[in-house]
Design a binder for these strands. Structure first.
Length: 164
DNA sequence: GCCAACGTTGGC
DNA sequence: GCCAACGTTGGC
């Protein structure tokens, strides 16, 4: 089966590309998704090795901050069973879990590709994350969009991080 | 803080 | 099953 490509939003306050790179195995479980469309992408369509554009959202500098990959098939999200968690879901049971997620592994950090840069390229006119009012935290990326972003726009991140 | 978009909820 | 109200997202 051909590889699929995705854009996954993360708030850098929660998990930035630096956090992902620093995580054990450069991998984090993508817990806490509580949107059916995003869940279905992870549960039904994501395969190990799928490409991920790691996007920083709800922050001073939104944009694509790194390249990652899907590390494995989806499995039930443990936070749905945890009464102490903000992601607890009383309707979910171990027999019938409602929420699933994959693990995401960092590949490399890149120089931030900001929204103005993305919007300026006609090749990305249909990129889902650029659509007005887009709120979906996981969106599909076409092979052509992936190739353009990773080979034309992506630049290696500077070795040292400048603090704003 | 504003506001557009849109998913979810709940009364009927 | 309709649909208005509400809540959340997220760029600006």
């Amino acid at each position: 089966m051909a590889k699929n490509y995705w854009l996954m939003k993360s708030e850098p306050d929660e998990c930035s590309i630096d956090d992902l790179l620093a995580a054990p195995g450069r991998t984090v479980p993508w817990t806490g998704v509580r949107n059916y469309q995003a869940r279905n992408f992870m549960r039904d369509l994501m395969r190990p090795g799928d490409g991920v554009l790691f996007y920083h959202s709800s922050c001073a500098q939104p944009g694509i901050a790194g390249i990652a990959r899907v590390a494995g098939r989806a499995y039930p999200d443990a936070t749905q069973f945890d009464r102490g968690s903000g992601y607890f879901d009383a309707a979910a049971t171990a027999e019938k879990p409602r929420w699933f997620h994959v693990d995401v592994q960092a590949v490399r950090k890149i120089e931030l590709i900001d929204l103005a840069t993305l919007r300026a390229r006609s090749e990305l006119a249909d990129l889902a994350v650029l659509r007005r009012g887009n709120r979906l935290s996981i969106t599909p990326v076409t092979a052509a969009q992936w190739k353009f972003i990773t080979t034309v726009l992506a630049r290696p991140a500077p070795a040292t991080e400048r603090r704003a």
